[in-house]
Design a binder for these strands. Structure first.
Lengths: 152, 152
DNA sequence: TTATCGCCGATTAATTTAGTCGGACATAAT
DNA sequence: ATTATGTCCGACTAAATTAATCGGCGATAA
């Protein structure tokens, strides 16, 4: 029901983990897995997929790990979803050209395709920094909390 | 992956079938089922659900059937989805209050909830007539085709 | 009073998503 | 060189969701 899969959730968490890190920082699967309580093997696969799609960059060997391969302000939620879940389709009747048996009578298809396209556009306009910048907000909150702990 | 369920597809087809009919027209489950090749029992349930939600109105007994209970220009795709699939949630971490184990570390939740809300707003702004008016467009097309068949 | 319709709960089947297992290859440190 | 630590990859099982079916009840126009 229009829900993102857990895989996508995990992918976003991992991306979030890597975003806005110092130059040279490498995130490895275990760290991310433990931080967010994500099953290691599953996360590993997700990172591999992201890597294959160029969203993150892998560095092999010990002391290896992953780096974000894209600019958080340049690439979008839509791209992450497509990388993990495949093409976004609200409607099922296009998949694999095998037109469904109701095609003939079905007059709702065309308008729904338009709506689907609007949804894709919507997701392709949400850059990752709008999701990951929250970190800074939290850091700020912590800083404020720190201050208020001191002041009284 | 952000896909509508078949149930919702069926619901939209059924609504489409009922929209813009003459006063007094009753659509029965069998007709709709045969027209769109939708399994009868399944469609029956969907129509019952729609009826329970006031989207369509049931008329019991022989010669009975359903009528659209709302104005296609007043009610929206979002409402149909909610009636059939329950509340729209892109994100899973809210469902039933049972906060997931990564809540503590998860900084992407808040921004995603905002995005989800935007999605809901989007769906709540698509009125059913934008989906069902296609009928008229097709009628028009047929009319034009008819004309061009005559003219040469 | 009966045939035709909607109404309802429970069950099964199919599909999709989530998570696991086992083993390969790469490479920095010893 | 050998080893420990990392990525990489395919096949598999388990769980959850979605789709479809079954059997029986209640309403009502003919």
């Amino acid at each position: 029901m229009l829900k993102l899969t857990k895989k996508t959730d995990y992918a976003l968490m991992a991306i979030n983990y890597m975003a806005y890190r110092k130059e040279g920082f490498l995130a490895n699967t275990r760290n991310i897995s433990e931080t967010y309580h994500i099953p290691l093997e599953q996360l590993a696969k997700i990172l591999q997929t992201l890597s294959k799609n160029g969203i993150i960059v892998s560095h092999n060997g010990p002391k290896g790990g992953y780096t974000l391969g894209v600019d958080p302000e340049q690439f979008t939620l839509g791209e992450v979803i497509r990388a993990i879940e495949g093409p976004i389709q609200m409607i099922r009747c296009i998949e694999g050209e095998s037109s469904c048996s109701q095609t003939e009578q079905c007059t709702i298809r065309t308008p729904l395709i338009k709506i689907e396209q609007q949804l894709v556009d919507f997701l392709d306009n949400i850059t990752i920094d709008t999701i990951c910048n929250e970190n800074e907000a939290i850091d700020q909150k912590k800083a404020i909390r720190g201050l208020s702990n001191i002041s009284p």
